[in-house]
Structure formats: C-alpha cells, structure tokens
Amino acid sequence: MAKGTVLIEVERCKACGFCVEFCPTKVLALSTAFNSKGYHPPHVIAPEKCSGCDLCGMFCPDFAIFGHRDVPAASEINQ
C-alpha cells in the first residue's frame, strides 16, 4: 500500500536524473518517451513503493516533480 504519490510535470523536466538516482525507494525511472523539448522525463515504475517523502521534489532543479504524502505524517498535521 503506497503511503504517497509522486506527481510529475513532464514539460518542465530536463532529464537530469536526480530524482531517479536519489529516490530512496526507487519509485522512478527515466522513460523512453520525449517531452516537447526532447528530454526523457521520469515516470513511475513502482507506485506502491512511494512513501511521499518529497525527496524528489527537493532535488528537482526544474521544479518538475514532487512527492505528496496521502496520509500526512504526525508532524505535518498542525501546519
């Protein structure tokens, strides 16, 4: 059961691969499809593993991806 979801804005991606490399649970892979700029954006290969930690969102230099916790962690409820 996935604890989180990862959302990708394909058109902003420049395929640096940071999110794919540093995803702690290896949810992502670069796809073979192109975006309109000719880059290969990441896609989700293992949605059930996503913990929603948002590390992809912190690494992404192009603001094209982020993780979202479906069930907010205790520390986030008060915010």
């Binding site: 989700v44 192009d62 603001f63 982020f66």
Partner: peptide
C-alpha cells in the same frame, strides 16, 4: 505506467515561483 500530470495538491515550491517565467534558464 502512465505519466501523471500535475493536479492539486500543488508542488510546495510553486507558490514561491513566478511561474510565468518558467522554465528557467
């Protein structure tokens, strides 16, 4: 697997960005 496009909830960085100037250089 299909690629998900952005939908609410929004990226936490989004409200701090001038999105009309994206993509950046």
């Amino acid at each position: 697997m299909s690629v998900t496009t952005i939908a609410p909830p929004a990226n936490p960085v989004e409200r701090f960005l001038r999105t009309d100037r994206m993509p950046h250089i």
